[in-house]
Design a protein around this nucleic acid. Structure first.
Lengths: 201, 201, 201, 201
DNA sequence: AATGAATGAGGGTTCATTCAT
DNA sequence: TATGAATGAACCCTCATTCAT
């Protein structure tokens, strides 16, 4: 059969991405079949191959897309002139909000790395290191100019990212605390980790 | 063919557990076949079914086994008379050491929960909540007796666990810092989160 | 590989049906593998699943197809105005000829009922009862109008059907008697069972 | 483990036979596993092999056992001096009663012949022909001495056996007619087939 | 005589992928 | 661009059978 009226290639590709994202996040890459993705958007499995050469490419595109968008999103909001305390707070806010809005992308970014073939894996790892360098640089700067008292910038960076990202696994809209409240708590926790004071962070 | 000379059921079951643990951690539950597990220990796939009724049961046993052993291990080392600062330090040391020794178990405990069927999932979730109550109780106690100044016990608990557990994803024996050094850093970071002082924590 | 040039789904489905019929009749449902059916028609086992969702569905379709075709075939040849003796003779001729032409369908209809799951089983049972009602009605009519002297219409119906159908298990083209001769004998036997006379049956 | 207290080889073999008979009749030879038979009598599958060399041998023994017992049972009750009409009535009574009591054996005798390997198959076929010769001889004798008016002894024999045996597929203890009543009806039907009269059969 | 652990083969079914249409 | 039919490999699991114990 020919293309459905009104559908375009770009549209279909986008719907495939969205369906794959949802299903990979819910069940895991290995447990999701191309047929399941296709069924989710009402096409046959074969149709996906007009847009993505293999299932692996689909995963890779989701992961690189996420990392690139993440970094680009930070570049869009970052204010290079901020002092380290303010820069750190901005980063924490950004990270929490961004990751909560993309919890599926975050989840598969951590979970499905091992399902990437070597070359693709290396590419994502590099992007991740690029992103981790953002808070690490802020911590280094704050350490250098005396605004922070940091035990170890690298360990603190990793600890902080793990702490912040972990929120996506337990945060619920209907929970005891609002997102604003949780965000405020996390900002204070980070401040303590770098021995800042809330007012001065 | 019949049983190999000298083999016993308990031994084989244990070797299956170990191989499955390793492979699930490396590639993920869905991506590991029963044949692959069997090959790892030099038997045919069918032999596994003498010891585990299904692949799902094998996963479930690994996960419940891990959580139960984890909790039991804490019970074995905990000193109920410790003041909160000392109790918290003991918990941090325990958690880091235990999780680093069992990074594979930790990894699949977080990764493969979604591959558990509903009933099994609920069982594990309960065990996890049981474990999380341990540091949460310490924080509550320390908050009550004034040894800690905690922003929010629940959020702090989750943040702390995420931070500590995250170490398993990046720690390497050959890294810049020794385990002792990293442990010391994490203890100080936790101390800051509860606004203790290192000397008094 | 993709579809072979010139192949269509309907064709393949029909070839699967024919191969399954032959093999089920020869070896029994449980003893025939999907791979064996596929090999018979020169495709891979997986291809069958494009046309039948499960092996059980394939069996069910053969059995319901047979019963429905059987009943439809009778409806096509029956002459409602015939007197009971002529109607009974017409039915006997029909049953013998039809069942001999479809000895494989007949065989699996009797043999493989137990391999049907409950719902499918019930459906076939109903169709069978529908068919049995045909001769039973003729006997009842002939009993009512005095053309037959029947001991018990229900038992006679079952006895007659068993007797006629049994022929498919021993009839051979190369046997002592031709089909016409056997048919004539069976008509006379039935006539005796209802105490008709050959000339008046 | 050693033998259970009180069990003997002969006992176990008999329990295997009984369990296999029941399960083969219910589900068919190919669909019943050695494990299922073993479970039915509370032993492990391996134990069966102390009593029967293969699954095929088990089936063969059931079938030959049935046919031999059937023929021996007839030999035990037959009265060689009876006139054909009385002999035929005696045979009908015997066949109905015997087959109804052994409906499972009868069923698998007809169903599972095809699951026998060639040599075993031939053996059973011979026994069946031996049994069929019993009514056939009675009909021949009655034909010869004028007590019967038979259309064709061979076809009549097959028709009669099919008719009588078919009863096992629909008879229910709780049905409309008692076994005695059904038996009486069948005797009259057979009498009509050989053109005897009830009183003279 | 029975268990329990194992084999090697094969079961039904699903899968990623291909390609004629 | 999409379908639908096909492949060939793989999957989980079960099987008949064997044999050390």
């Amino acid at each position: 059969m020919a293309r459905k009226v009104g559908s375009t290639g770009a549209e279909t590709a986008q719907r495939v991405r969205e369906a794959a994202l949802e299903l990979f996040a819910r069940s895991g890459y290995a447990a999701v079949s191309m047929r399941a993705i296709a069924a989710e958007i009402g096409v046959q499995a074969g149709a996906i191959y007009n847009h993505f050469p293999t299932k692996q490419d689909l995963l890779k595109e989701l992961l690189t897309g996420h990392m690139e968008t993440l970094i680009a999103a930070w570049r869009a909001v970052e204010q290079p002139d901020l002092k380290p305390p303010q820069a750190l707070e901005a980063f924490v806010r950004f990270h929490i909000r961004y990751h909560l809005d993309r919890s599926r992308e975050v989840f598969i970014s951590y979970m499905e790395l091992r399902n990437l073939e070597d070359e693709n894996f290396g590419q994502i790892e590099q992007l991740r290191r690029d992103y981790e360098r953002i808070p690490w640089t802020i911590l280094e700067n704050g350490s250098a100019d005396g605004s922070f008292d940091i035990i170890d910038p690298q360990v603190t960076t990793m600890a902080m990212i793990a702490m912040l990202t972990g929120m996506t696994t337990w945060y619920r809209d209907s929970g005891r605390l609002s997102l604003d409240e949780i965000e405020a708590i996390y900002i204070r926790l980070v401040a303590r980790m770098v021995r800042g004071r809330k007012r001065s962070l």
